[in-house]
Amino acid sequence: MVIKKHFFIKLLGFFLLFFFLTSIARGMDLTSTSFIVRDPIVGTGGGYGSSASFQLISAGNTTLSGVASSASFSTHYGFLYYPNPNPPSITFDIDTYNTSTTTTTTVAPYSVSLGTLSPAAVTGTTEGGGGTPNGIWFSLDANGAGGAIVTVVSSGGALKSTSVPGDTIPSATAAMSAGTANYGICANRNATTTGVLNKVSPFASTCGTTPSSNSVGAVTTSAQTIYNTGGAAVTGGRGEIMVDAAISNTTPAHTDYGDTLTFIATSTF
């Protein structure tokens, strides 16, 4: 009787073990010089059927399955595969205009013409628009789990004369002041549908309706973050960037001061 009891316990244990063993898939890549089948398992059954009004994807008793790909194809063997319903996405667009609206769209080339500068006043973008220099706007949507950033790079790190590159209106992080040569940008209005759009130092200081009241951040030839989404996805992001410049009595006279600002949007997926 005891022997029988022991026997059935062992037999039970064996079948339990066998059950779990057969549940473990064994993965081994199948490779050749032109493709790799990763973690394949073999199965039977499955298929695809369709008509004008339906599609049916079916799978049978899959004991083998896997993903195979090459430079020209990819396939998913032996199991039901659904594309990522929320694939990585990011859209980014620039606009430049000088009206008071916040959602105007424009097309390239994008420009900000500061016009004739004077030591008597700071020249720059204002919220009211109406003939003042263009402001810079961007639209941003990104679903990266790590959020997104918008960076800015200046081609010269200053407003440089094309004819005499040594003559510049320098760029420094500072409060704008008439008669003190300076050129820079600041982050102003921002909005989102979902998520947040944060201004980032040194562009996050006083920035609003009056150029002479703005504190700008210096533009440099290295990328600097001007806005971020706080490490999370964003939809309907809309951000404004204002441009200011001032000169002194001794800023060399030229008609060809210029700079090119390059904006880049990067999301972390």
């Binding site: 694939p87 420009s111 500061l114 004739t116 030229h254 001061y257």
Partner: peptide, 28 residues
């Protein structure tokens, strides 16, 4: 795709993300 892992990323391509800034200073 690495030996064991995979992932992807997306980037935007726009008509332009450059903004040209210009100014002039009158002779005095």
């Amino acid at each position: 795709t690495t030996t064991s892992d995979s992932g992807s990323f997306t980037v935007p391509i726009a008509d332009s993300t450059l903004v040209g800034v210009t100014a002039n200073v009158t002779q005095t």
